[in-house]
């Protein structure tokens, strides 16, 4: 029964190989199955998921107002020291002094997109943006100031 086993092996082997070739042949003849995402070409239509964690941004409204109170909860929550908040004392119209942010420094190069700062923020001042093309030629460009120049805190945010 040696011969039977010998030719049985050959038969099974050839059949298994042909099975694989049938599959690759199928995909070769069905270009519709192609799965490639032509990335730089589809930039205009590319839609990221709304939760995608690209970078931390601070939304400003039309009056150039943000919601950051300068409480530094995000700075504490950040595991990498990505966020540095420089605060100042701002004179209110009623004469009282109030803590406000001077600059909200965000080091994108240190950020791991863990979302802990956004979760920690009590006033929803920072959110994750869906951008993902972060490459720059100079590392300095990755250090960002999130509050726009001349912006101030929104009315009613404590």
């Amino acid at each position: 029964m040696f011969l039977k086993e010998y030719f049985g092996t050959i038969f099974r082997s050839v059949r298994s190989l042909l099975k694989g070739m049938k599959l690759t042949g199928y995909y070769f003849t069905h270009p519709k199955e192609i799965h490639t995402e032509e990335y730089p070409d589809n930039r205009a239509t590319l839609q990221m998921f709304d939760r995608f964690k690209g970078e931390v941004v601070m939304p400003h409204d039309d009056n150039n107002e943000h919601r950051c109170t300068g409480c530094q909860a995000c700075e504490i929550a950040c595991p990498n020291g990505t966020i540095k908040i420089i605060t100042k004392q701002e004179l209110q119209p009623d004469g009282k002094k109030k803590k406000a942010i001077d600059t909200f420094v965000y080091h994108l190069e240190l950020c791991t997109m863990c979302n802990l700062c956004v979760v920690a923020c009590p006033s929803d001042a920072i959110v994750m943006a869906q951008t993902f093309e972060h490459s720059v030629y100079d590392k300095k460009q990755l250090k960002k100031v999130l509050n726009k120049p001349g912006s101030k805190i929104m009315e009613g945010v404590e």
């Binding site: 998921f49 939760r51 995608f52 964690k53 791991t112 997109m113 863990c114 979302n115 802990l116 994750m128």
Partner: peptide
């Protein structure tokens, strides 16, 4: 993963 967690690999 990306849709629910916001990241594909390092979800946290």
């Amino acid at each position: 993963m990306e849709e629910s967690c916001g990241a594909r690999l390092t979800q946290n």
